[in-house]
Amino acid sequence: MVKAYTYILQCFDDTFYVGSTKYLEKRIEQHQNAEGSEYTKRRLPVTLFYYEEYDRIDHAFYREKQLQGWSRKKKLALMGGDLELLPELAKKIFRENE
């Protein structure tokens, strides 16, 4: 069974890039060779900081879109395993946008 991945790269400028793919190692190599996204091309080198594995690419893509909407603090909490902080960080984002 082919797996799918949602991944987060840390770019040279300390920003994060979120993507999804069926072939994680190949995709990271593409990013490193400036064959990935326009965003990462200008921010090389990149480092794989976090990934999640899925059985279906559409699930990985859905998760990618979800994480792209998250704040930096919320992404850092996820990547650091501080899952108990996620609900509170979501509330802070909502309150800031009111």
Rank of each mutant, 00 (worst) to 15 (best):
K73C: 09
A90V: 07
L76V: 14
K3G: 10
A34L: 02
Y17M: 07
T21V: 10
H31G: 03
R72T: 07
V18Y: 01
D55K: 14
I8C: 06
G36F: 00
F94M: 13
T21A: 11
V2I: 11
Q10R: 15
G80Y: 01
D58T: 07
Y62A: 12
Q10W: 03
R95V: 12
G80P: 09
G36K: 00
L9G: 02
I57D: 06
M79E: 00
T15D: 08
I93M: 14
G69I: 05
G69Q: 12
A34V: 01
K92C: 13
E64M: 06
F49V: 09
L67K: 05
V18W: 02
T47P: 04
H31M: 03
T6E: 08
S71V: 06
I93K: 15
V2W: 05
K91D: 06
K3I: 04
K26G: 06
E53G: 08
I8G: 04
E52M: 05
I93R: 15
R72I: 10
D82G: 06
E88G: 08
I93T: 14
A4N: 03
E35K: 14
C11I: 13
E84K: 15
E96I: 11
K22P: 06
K74G: 10
T21E: 01
I57T: 07
M1H: 08
K73G: 11
I57G: 06
L89W: 05
Y17A: 05
E96W: 04
F61K: 12
L24Q: 09
G81M: 13
Q68L: 12
A90H: 07
L44F: 07
G69R: 14
K74V: 01
Q68H: 04
R42N: 13
N33K: 15
E25T: 13
I8L: 07
F61L: 15
E84W: 10
Y5W: 10
W70K: 15
M79H: 01
S71Y: 04
K22R: 15
K73M: 10
H59M: 09
R43E: 03
R42Y: 02
Y5H: 12
K65I: 04
R56C: 03
G19L: 00
V2G: 05
D14K: 15
E29I: 15
F94E: 14
Y17S: 02
K3E: 09
A34T: 02
T40F: 02
K3A: 11
Q32M: 14
R43N: 13
E35T: 05
I8P: 00
R42Q: 13
A60Y: 03
G69W: 04
K65F: 09
F61P: 00
E98C: 11
Y39M: 01
K3P: 00
F94N: 08
A77R: 08
Y5F: 15
A4Y: 03
G80H: 07
E98V: 15
T6K: 09
G19C: 00
G19D: 03
V46D: 05
W70Q: 07
L44V: 06
I57Q: 14
